[in-house]
Amino acid sequence: MVDIISAKSLGSNDIKIDGAVGEPFCDDAKMSMRNVDVFYGDNQAIHDVSFDLEKNQVTALIGPSGCGKSTFLRCLNRMNDLIPICNVKGSLQLDGEEIYGKQMDPVLLRARVGMVFQKPNPFPKSIYENVAYGPKIHGLATDKSELDEIVETSLRKAGLFNEVKDRLDQPGTGLSGGQQQRLCIARTIAVSPEVILMDEPASALDPIATAVIEELIHELKEKYTIAIVTHSMQQAARVSQKTAYFHLGKLVEMGDTKQIFTNPRHELTENYISGRFG
């Protein structure tokens, strides 16, 4: 008669994942993934995953270690191309364009779909050069003053400009961890991406630097579509509007973050977010 949350022991094999529950699709999709399988050699890491990244929204991908969320994220700008044994099947579209299509230049794709990594990884160059590098190689600036403007705007958007404006010529590696991560975000923004992928962007940062990054994510979504992988469920709850829960390479559930964290539909989601999963 009514909804039941049957409670079997967590992680047991008798809990079936029979297609994602919830609302994995939307009307205003920036990226659409359908029936995506990912293989590392013979080993299948992602099984038939389909969902949309909604435009100007933050989508959090959560799940236990090894569930495939980072693998999936890396498919979205073809970072997995760098792994020879990695094979991606299915349809992954950016504004209706196949990102694994023959016409798609991976370098240009990565400018449109930027990525911020777990560990801040500024180039061993000056703060200015870190941000200017992308626009330079993509020919986004015609002269020095234009480049200066891009660098300043990007640093401002990343909430870093006021902290570094007097030392733009100093090494990016000399900044604090939180500042370095914001520098990496500025570097990503500098090439005017449409989508920003973040793989555990705050896991190496202290709570204050984390809060700054989270606030930044909140502001960035006005202009960009964001997908974030995080192990911190509180972070997922704080920064995202949509949440996708992965388990053993499958998408178990996707829906509004508020719903996922108060009333998830799938037992596995429930168990994971309430700390019942081993």
């Binding site: 008669m1 039941i4 949350i5 409670a7 022991s9």
Partner: peptide, 16 residues
């Protein structure tokens, strides 16, 4: 169908 909820244990037993 039973309309009851019996929660499983948390990883943190202290939480339980």
């Amino acid at each position: 169908m039973e309309n009851e909820y019996q929660p499983t244990q948390h990883i943190s037993q202290q939480f339980d």
